[in-house]
Write a protein that binds this DNA or RNA. Structure first.
Lengths: 277, 277
DNA sequence: TATACTAATGACTAATCGGTCATTTTGTCA
DNA sequence: TGACAAAATGACCGATTAGTCATTAGTATA
């Protein structure tokens, strides 16, 4: 395990239990069994660490949900959406705790922007989903439906987190699918009109910047043990710097990474960058 | 305006914009135009300040909602519940911001307990409300209904707060009443069973401790300009220390305070303490 | 073994924090 | 006016923080 990964893993625990501001760098390094200096070899600042954490998990969550939403039948989309969300919630309870705690703190502009970005991204995913499931029928209530879905997830997450409960992902998913369906088919009095809802539309997927992509590749290479996937990534990195291979080869290399479930986001970005379908 | 009130007003702004931990006592006193020493004449510590803030607003909110729920017809209860909630939200946006930010921070036990206490109180109020509106019919889904209602409020509050919008309290209330009604009448697949829902029942209204009551009276006296209400409070304070007057007189004195809308909580506690109906 | 390089250390700094208290200012009596 | 008390001040304290950097440990090459 790379040092960066070690710090991220351990600090996640501490942040979740004590909050971001209340956790000192000294505490993190003690807990990791490394020196303070070593911390600053991996991260330029404490802020950079929390942003890296948020990015790491949100990218994965966004990619998981996106793939669940795009790859399932119209009938099952809602179920798989909730299932993926709460499965991820169960697997990364510590991260969710940080998210709920630090959600709108203004103290760090970069952090706030990240949060906003992912919030918008979630809106967009949900919008795509409900349009796919209900089509034109819910056009005038779609923004209320988005808020209701996010609200339900929030309400139930808070309850589960507070009670530290083991829970049945299948049951909660089916229960929330029913609620969503009930709302979608019966609401007649939306609060958010098309006009107010403009902000939901404003989201544009970011350009895949070469810098960001390279940085993400480097981080991932760092995390990986020697393997075909690592070798593929190294080759793709070269390909970005100086294009050498044909599309087919590039596609094959990306396919080698696609199989690792935790790198769906990277796969997504690579596919987009190299213009592969 | 008393110094305590001044500090609470000003610090509310700062906490809302920067968070609790990120705001220093020095910053608060500078913003108030007083010295650091003066701060500690009003509050024993910084923690005591945040707890006072939370108490102040939550007591008022709880009393407002409670009176809205208990004093309206079964048909209108839901509407007045949401109306009171969002009206209060609109009037005290800064406080809501703090609540959303600091909601589950563990760093301070007393604070955490306050939060939990009021969360439970909210659950209880909502439970009473939906039982009054829907009776036995929703018995098996009532806990899901509580979570859904809290979730909806949360979802819409977050949206409104984020967009810093002026909004139509009547419209959002009617819109959420409809959603609540739709859910109450159509849910067939609850996630939380009677057994899991035990925790919702555990709430017991706190005993009215003499110390707490006296402290609240003193704070309120401090806030008030000279008036009948202030005089009444001073007399009631004496009555607690050494009972002198008959029930009728006590009841009359409490009535003098009841008329001030912002002291419903105090009225409630006094009524309970003196055993008046 | 000697050299060169990187990785890792932890004592240190400057700044900031919550909280204290000797001192001064202000207000109120006779 | 003068004596006294209450209110208010801000320099100061010990503790803690994020971040730095001269030094050391570890490793690979010659």
């Amino acid at each position: 395990m790379s040092k960066k990964k070690l710090i991220m893993d351990k600090s996640l625990e501490l942040f979740a239990n004590q909050g971001f501001e209340a956790t000192s760098v000294q505490q993190i390094t003690d807990y990791c069994g490394i020196s303070k200096g070593a911390f600053y070899l991996s991260f330029k600042s404490k802020d950079e660490l929390i942003i890296a954490l948020i990015d790491h998990f949100m990218q994965q969550l966004a990619a998981d949900i996106d793939s669940a939403v795009t790859s399932s039948n119209s009938d099952d989309i809602l179920y798989y959406f909730y299932h993926t969300s709460f499965q991820s919630f169960q697997n990364h309870a510590n991260f969710v705790k940080i998210l709920l705690n630090e959600q709108t703190h203004t103290f760090n502009d970069a952090l706030l922007n990240k949060m906003r970005y992912y919030d918008r991204k979630t809106d967009q995913t949900i919008l795509t989903m409900i349009e796919k499931v209900y089509g034109e029928a819910i056009n005038n209530i779609k923004f209320d439906l988005i808020l209701s879905i996010k609200g339900l997830i929030n309400g139930y997450s808070g309850y589960l987190l507070f009670n530290r409960m083991e829970f049945d992902v299948d049951l909660i998913s089916r229960s929330l699918v029913e609620k969503t369906d009930i709302l979608a088919k019966n609401i007649t009095m939306p609060f958010i009109t098309e006009d107010n809802g403009k902000m939901f539309q404003q989201f544009q997927e970011e350009e895949v910047s070469e810098d960001n992509l390279l940085q993400l590749i480097n981080t991932t290479i760092d995390e990986l043990e020697d393997s075909i996937a690592k070798e593929s990534l190294l080759l793709l990195k070269e390909q970005i710097r100086t294009p050498t291979y044909q599309q087919a080869i590039v596609k094959g290399l990306i396919e080698n990474i696609k199989n690792l479930s935790q790198y769906k986001w990277l796969t997504h970005l690579l596919t987009k960058y190299f213009n592969i379908n």
